[in-house]
């Protein structure tokens, strides 16, 4: 249940933003409440102004605790969504940001609600979701190319970390610093990081990388894609980082034969990307970034487990995530061996 004070504060905010005579929240449902943030799905009855009628929207708030240190806050996520929307990426349209903590006690923004499901294991198993799979894979490639059309410098995205190194080496450095701070050594992961260091591609084009572009983080209905979600890890990087993350075996939800995110064929995905970007993807280099994807996911898995082990957030989900690390490390050992 959404508390009455919260309900009224949100309604008043929306009325002010849209120039409405009145706004009333007729329905509110908590979608996810977690360490990172709370999401509310709301229906707003608006009288007068630019959005007169019924508005289906999602409210995304910062978490009370401040969330995960590496993820962007809501104001930053709003700026990323704005940039993506302007670049023609299919995202829930961002409507209004409220950075003023006085309104509901923490920053939030309002975006249009999109329909569908994002659950990776459903998409992979059940062909009713996502429409034609050749089209879906191609479409996702096109979407990613549009994301990558966002290039620095971007004053609106000035909060994104800037660095001069090759993106691959930058990641290797970040992962090593984390491992050095961790109580348990991970020599197989070190083996992977050494391989990634020795084979690192030089710095080339730098683009906005979504950094979590994978099955599970986009929404589909029975006709196809309805929106790309989860922008909180976006940053400047090599365009192939997202390609490798999307295609990596660890993000196929068990459908290992369908190499584009467990939902389609690589070449369909690549074709969509190449069509929009006008650049040919280096197939050989994608393999490098798939090794990087396994290393990055292994680091995240270790971090998630640490949140549980340290007592910061007791959760069986986080605890079990730590037990994914061994298979990722095993995969890294296999992938870094010449065939």
């Amino acid at each position: 249940m959404m508390e009455e004070t919260l309900r009224q504060a949100l309604a008043a905010f929306i009325a002010k933003e849209t120039g409405a005579a009145e706004a009333r929240i007729s329905e509110a449902k908590l979608l996810t409440g977690g360490a990172v943030q709370e999401n509310w799905k709301v229906q707003v009855d608006i009288t007068g102004g630019a959005y007169a009628g019924v508005l289906d929207a999602v409210i995304r708030t910062d978490s009370a605790s401040g969330g995960v240190a590496v993820s962007h806050n809501r104001a930053e996520e709003y700026a990323l969504l704005k940039a993506a929307f302007a670049a023609g990426v299919t995202v829930p349209e961002p409507l209004w940001l409220c950075a003023d903590k006085a309104v509901i006690g923490r920053p939030f923004f309002v975006m249009l609600c999109i329909a569908g499901t994002a659950a990776g294991h459903l998409l992979v198993k059940d062909a009713r979701y996502g429409g034609d799979r050749v089209q879906l894979a191609e479409r996702l490639g096109m979407e990613l190319a549009r994301i990558h059309s966002i290039r620095p410098p971007r004053p609106d995205l000035a909060f994104l970390e800037w660095y001069e190194e090759a993106p691959a080496l930058h990641s290797v450095g970040r992962f090593r610093r984390y491992l050095d701070s961790h109580a348990i050594p991970h020599p197989a992961l070190e083996w992977g990081l050494r391989w990634l260091e020795r084979n690192a591609p030089p710095r080339g084009d730098i683009v906005l990388s979504h950094r979590d572009f994978r099955t599970g983080n986009y929404m589909v209905d029975e006709n196809g894609l309805t929106g790309i979600l989860d922008w909180e890890f976006a940053g400047w990087s090599d365009p192939l980082e997202d390609i490798g993350w999307f295609c990596a075996k660890c993000w196929r939800f068990g459908a290992k034969g369908r190499e584009a995110g467990g939902i389609g064929e690589r070449e369909d995905f690549y074709r969509g990307y190449e069509k929009i970007s006008g650049r040919r993807l280096d197939r050989q280099l994608v393999h490098y970034w798939e090794v990087m994807a396994h290393a990055a996911w292994a680091i995240i898995a270790i971090q998630q487990a640490e949140r549980h082990v340290s007592g910061e957030e007791t959760s069986l989900m986080l605890a079990l995530t730590g037990h994914i690390a061994p298979e990722l490390e095993y995969e890294i050992l296999t992938m870094t061996e010449p065939v």
Binding site: P187, A188, W191, H323, I324, A325, P326, E327, E329, Y330, L333, E337
Partner: peptide
């Protein structure tokens, strides 16, 4: 030697975890 050791120990860890 290192690769053989890593393969063995990692396989052992996977055998426990998954």
């Amino acid at each position: 030697q290192v690769r053989a050791l890593l393969l063995e120990t990692t396989r052992q860890r996977v055998a426990i975890s998954n």
